[in-house]
Design a protein around this nucleic acid. Structure first.
Lengths: 220, 220
DNA sequence: GTCTATAAATTGATAGAC
DNA sequence: GTCTATCAATTTATAGAC
């Protein structure tokens, strides 16, 4: 049996530490010294394995985002194959892979989803563009699928509704403990993943299907 | 006629510069040197006027958040007085003041809304708590109002739907240019505030009114 | 109230031994 | 691949002249 490849263990330790610290202090707020100290590796290891701090940031996102978007596309393809493309199944296919990342607490997925929520607003233009590239194929597929499943919604209106959907999901992933802001709801109130998915899906589905006002009916 | 008070002009210049730079580079990513240089004031001025960088951050939020939440409460009170409390009017009262901030481009409100979107996930626990305090009275009022306007929705379900609403708004304010991520939609495509408000309201109203699944029907 | 000057610490990155 | 040692730049913050 093959042992764990030693050339990857340091890399992984660095990625895990970076994920946690970037989430907690931001990119610019995390120093290489904090990072390598937490990872239990030498200060020079980041530059050896990744080249620079910026390259490390990109690697942190690639590690999680690529599999997540692959899963999203795979689920959509499965739906298309089985001919069961409804607005609700499309939403579930989109939302599911990211919620499953939240559940992967011990794998560090929870850290990542919170980090991910920040990226849409925080980071440098170059990082935002890079993340946009990672999402692009997925978004294109889902846009097409939703246009077909919701032919009654004008395309430019649908773009905005997808934007709202994306925002709701991003915020939910990033700020789960902010429910506290609204009610006296304890943050770790036995977080129920299944129930959250139901709630989120119901909300998003209704939003996507919302009745059209006359002001929205200008053609694309 | 009284001239502009000189003791406030430096303060304001600093707040404006901070708002823009915090949005662009984050709190920890913005140095006092960048900040004072952009504001055209001396490096020592921040510590003189605000005491520290942290206190400056708080002041940046207070300047916009307090009037915005005051406006939200005022609009809700007006609705209550006129007896026209419907889910839709409540949503508009909540959403309106923040969208009007977006429109206030030359006053710097646009910068602030983008900054605001970041706060729910990014900042230190202390800043998040502080912002939570600024929001608390408003959220309490709106929670009560929505519970009354939507008696058919269980309270714990409504908390989540408010959370989703809050997230959609936060994301919309923060990442308006991310619509680009979804479609080939130019970011500055003659941003139409009135139309956005209609789209957002329709989406949120439908989400709040979404039909209940049996799994959501456990009592509070 | 505003300035210069500077202290004291920390930063990302690299060179070179092992 | 990992280490120590260190560079050059930048950071927050303050002391003290004006």
């Amino acid at each position: 049996m093959q042992a764990i490849k030693p050339e990857h263990v340091t890399r992984t330790r660095i990625l895990d530490a970076a994920e946690a610290l970037f989430m907690q202090h931001g990119f610019e707020g995390t120093s290489m010294r904090q990072l390598t100290s937490r990872a239990g590796v030498n200060l020079a290891a980041v530059n050896y394995h990744f080249g620079s701090k910026d390259a490390l940031i990109q690697a942190v996102f690639r590690r999680r985002l690529d599999p997540m978007n692959t899963a999203r596309i795979a689920e959509l393809a499965k739906l298309e194959a089985s001919g069961s493309l409804s607005p609700e199944t499309i939403i579930r296919a989109f939302v599911g892979p990211s919620l499953r990342l939240v559940e992967d607490a011990k794998g560090g997925g929870r850290n990542f989803t919170r980090l991910l929520g920040r990226t849409y607003t925080e980071p440098s233009k170059t990082l935002r563009a890079l993340i946009g590239q990672m999402y692009a194929p997925t978004m294109e597929r889902y846009k097409t699928a939703l246009e077909r499943a919701l032919p009654q919604i004008p395309k430019d209106e649908l773009v905005w509704r997808m934007h709202f959907m994306f925002g709701t999901l991003a915020y939910t992933l990033a700020a789960t403990d902010t429910v506290q802001l609204i009610a006296g709801c304890k943050p770790e109130d036995r977080y129920d993943a299944q129930l959250l998915e139901e709630r989120l899906t119901a909300f998003l589905l209704a939003g996507l299907l919302a009745p059209l006002k006359t002001s929205m009916r200008k053609a694309a």
